[in-house]
Design a binder for these strands. Sequence first.
DNA 1: AATAGGTGCTTCGAATTCGAAGCGATAATC
DNA 2: GATTATCGCTTCGAATTCGAAGCACCTATT
Lengths: 165, 165
Amino acid sequence: MPQTPATLDAVQLGSYFALMDVAGLLRHAVEQQLRDDGDLSYVQFQLLARLALDSPTGSERMTDLADGVVYSRSGLTYQVGLLEKVGLVDRAPSVDDERSVTVTVTEAGRERVATVIPGHVEVVRQQLFAVLSQQETRALGELLAPVREHMRSAPPRSATTRRRR
Amino acid sequence: MPQTPATLDAVQLGSYFALMDVAGLLRHAVEQQLRDDGDLSYVQFQLLARLALDSPTGSERMTDLADGVVYSRSGLTYQVGLLEKVGLVDRAPSVDDERSVTVTVTEAGRERVATVIPGHVEVVRQQLFAVLSQQETRALGELLAPVREHMRSAPPRSATTRRRR
DNA sequence: AATAGGTGCTTCGAATTCGAAGCGATAATC
DNA sequence: GATTATCGCTTCGAATTCGAAGCACCTATT
């Protein structure tokens, strides 16, 4: 295999670091806005948004939520517990499988998402899209979409290709 | 201002989520490799790499380190403390300013970085660059570099543009 | 239909994270 | 040059995170 040197060239390094930095900075900015405007963590927002905006029924099983978000099961239990405590979601055993727990957004949960969205969008626009043209935005998405597919197909929690020591 | 609706179009949303997802998944993969191969967290690796590879002297002030990494001061104190405890860095008061602390990589620290780098590079290549052509890799970097500049210039920890409630 | 194994979620303890408050050291102002 | 503000770092407590272990339920094998 001649084409796999143990180095990243300068272009690759630059892209890699830029990606990680941008995501980190964006996440910080977004988290602060969510905290200020709606008293939500990024994860909580993701969960609520997924339930309120993506799910037709407003409900999902814990496992499906965990798979959507990049997140551990136990962490999910914790965050959903917090959301339930403040009345933004309900939790109930699934009808067809007693093990499963179905999480459902409450009306208050939907309202909270609606409250937070405008500021959220505004931050993302200012931080990320302010410096990207429409074409560049499209290009970015088209570059990253297949990468995401690729990464999701190779589960990150167990696959390091090989493990030494 | 007619060009600032409180919405992100589908293309923007897709790019935004793809970016956050990819970065999150990549970070997971990388953290696992670092843990397995060198018993380092991602932050610790960033710190060591910056000292060992980017700094001519192998030293930096705590504040400069914190600014380079996206990280809180107290978190930095904690992690540098861990690194010092295992002998990968030294910590000493600065000569010119008694308040400052100068952190320096030790020889062991340099070796640790060297140990971890090949696997690290391999993970990044497999997760990220396996699905990107050379041109695409370049394009990604060129898209993100100005974004990073923009974000760094507007400090994320204090600027939410405006805060309600 | 009994047993063995797999699934879905939670509990637990340890580690990591942050912001606020605190402490000396330095800089700025008068 | 004394006082006041600022800076650089650490300590502290609270919150969040994870993986491992545990528990209840479901599925497959016989």
